[in-house]
């Protein structure tokens, strides 16, 4: 059996805490926007924006970002189909919070930052992740982390969300469980 790192209630509480941390650090919603990285970060960005909006009584713009065209591993890894990038607002002078589900090598975040910089000139970019599993290959850190989980390289962290028809939960899969 895969090890459950977070159940539905814990996912909810973690996101609530992260939303409060974001408001505290950015001192309100002025110029704030959230950009979820396809595919895992998009629903999380929407949830965080909703929570921030409820607390602050303001609408926080949310975008989605596909990083396929900015990856450094086009020849190494089989790529999934390209998803849509939809950022229906201007990024100039904004406080952009990038949102992803699992923070691993840091390469996706590097790609996401390059993509954002090609689309505008934000005042700052910060990073919010639900799970930080370690094994960084680049000097990148998260500004907001839901949970730090020590993992080995062969393991896999899976974030399941209600928006995809699953029960909210985060699982840690061993190498045997991945191949089996």
């Amino acid at each position: 059996m895969a090890k459950k790192l977070l159940d539905a209630k814990e996912v909810e509480r973690t996101l609530t805490r992260m939303s409060h941390e974001i408001i505290e650090k950015t001192k309100g919603t002025e110029g704030l926007c959230l950009v979820g990285i396809q595919r895992g970060g998009v629903h999380l960005a929407q949830r965080l924006a909703r929570k921030i909006g409820e607390t602050e009584g303001a609408e926080v713009p949310v975008g989605s970002l596909d990083i396929s065209f900015y990856r450094d591993d086009i020849k190494i890894r089989r790529q999934p189909a390209v998803s849509k990038t939809e950022i229906p607002f201007n990024l100039d002078e904004k406080k952009v919070i990038l949102v992803d589900d699992v923070f691993f090598t840091g390469r996706s975040i590097r790609a996401a930052m390059d993509a954002i910089m090609d689309m505008g000139r934000p005042a700052m970019i910060q990073l919010a992740v639900l799970i930080d599993r370690g094994h960084r290959e680049l000097p990148i850190r998260a500004d907001y982390a839901g949970k730090n989980v020590p993992t080995s390289l062969g393991e896999r962290v899976e974030v399941l969300l209600a928006e995809e028809g699953e029960e909210d939960s985060v699982l840690l899969l061993s190498p045997e469980e991945i191949t089996g």
Partner: peptide, 11 residues
């Protein structure tokens, strides 16, 4: 991508 100001990607 072609609709953006920067119409180029490093792919």
């Amino acid at each position: 991508v072609l609709k953006r100001d920067i119409k180029k990607v490093p792919t």
